[in-house]
Design a protein around this nucleic acid. Structure first.
Length: 341
DNA sequence: GAGTCGTGGGT
DNA sequence: TACCCAAGACT
């Protein structure tokens, strides 16, 4: 694997060349958080903007919370951004501004779990650590043809990974396994002809490498419905801030009622007004449900009471840092020509 | 162990 | 198209 990696490693902004000195721990940490459940190509532009704005732990720890959330907008899983800020502040306050170099200490930092702790220890500090992410799970499940369905197979996969992890260059080994999983040992149509370890792969010898890792059938995503509100005042629109915990926590948003199985009502509007329903609806797929939102537009009369929020210039809505579901809805309101849009 | 938590790319 | 899934963590 290391020999293959020496010649085939992807060049990435947070990565050092194979066999060279470890990269900046801050950049390793940031990239690992951004890469959780997120593909490399999606992360790269966010990583570049982020490091230009906050190049180290000290600058990030001193950053404004709202600006951090806005910079993360569109990347998803927003708890990562909240924990990233907590993590940077913990590193400054409790570790002298430098990331600790052991897995156990790394695990105490918000946002760092078993995978990320092992990855940072190996990649940024050159320690031997058993790094198991989704790529490694797939490669190892195939290499050893592990028949146990996920997630029950996780302990066996970790044990098997331990047996093939080298004592030196564990970081390069981990990155080699992840590159292999991302480019060759892919979930569907693995390219075994280009695989450096195909000769020892039990799943390939069996003839159906795609069968691994074995997974149980998953259930269908339920439908949820709701209403989003577009309240305007001159050339501005009313935005709210969502509660810190839960779905899209801490993010700027359009006012919305709850998202539930039942059809929506207008009772959750941000203010009393002559709401006009648009002809179109906004749809968006989340991890565990599908959302269909009715769209209601109105002008504020300058009199009725408003819950906490802020007027935002419609022409500058791109800088509000709206999650994608709200950015999509905002586009529909503006295309409709709704009041002020 | 199971549910929650986004979004975009690939097929 | 509809579905799968990604360098997981947290509760």
């Amino acid at each position: 694997m290391l020999a293959w990696y020496d010649g085939a490693a992807r060049v990435l902004p947070w990565r050092a060349p194979p066999g060279s000195a470890p990269p900046d721990p801050y950049r390793v940490w940031l990239s690992e958080i951004m890469l959780q459940q997120t593909q490399v190509a999606t992360v790269i532009p966010y990583f570049e903007r982020w490091t230009a704005r906050w190049p180290d732990f000290a600058s990030l720890a001193a950053a404004d919370d709202a600006e951090v959330m806005s910079m993360w907008a569109g990347l998803g899983y927003y708890a990562r951004a909240r924990n990233l800020l907590k993590g940077a502040r913990a590193v400054v306050a409790e570790h002298g501004g430098r990331l600790p170099d052991t897995e156990a200490a790394l695990l105490t930092i918000p946002g760092i779990g078993p995978y990320t702790a092992a990855a940072i220890a190996a990649i940024a500090f050159g320690r031997r650590a058993v790094v198991v992410d989704g790529n490694v799970e797939r490669v190892v499940a195939r290499l050893f043809a592990i028949p146990t369905p996920m997630p029950a197979a996780k302990p066996a996969i970790r044990a098997a990974t331990d047996t093939i992890t080298p004592d030196t260059r564990a970081g390069d080994f981990a990155q080699a396994m992840m590159d292999l999983g991302a480019r060759i040992c892919t979930p569907r149509s693995p390219k075994c002809l280009f695989c450096p370890i195909a000769a020892g792969c039990t799943a390939r010898i069996e003839g159906e490498p795609e069968r691994y890792p074995v997974k149980a059938a998953k259930k269908a995503r339920p439908l949820r419905q709701g209403t989003m509100f577009w309240l305007t005042n001159a050339n501005r629109v009313w935005l709210v801030r969502r509660p810190d915990k839960g779905l899209l926590g801490g993010m700027r948003a359009l006012p919305t009622g709850p998202w539930e199985a039942e059809p929506p009502v207008l009772a959750d509007a941000p203010t009393a007004a002559n709401w006009r329903m648009l002809d179109t609806v906004a749809t968006h797929g989340f991890t565990h449900f599908e959302l269909v939102c009715a769209l209601a537009a109105a002008r504020w009369d300058g009199q009725t009471a408003l819950a906490p929020g802020e007027w935002w210039p419609i022409a500058d809505l791109e800088s509000a840092g709206l999650p994608t579901v709200f950015a999509k809805a905002a586009r529909l309101f503006r295309e409709d020509g709704a009041c002020g849009g």
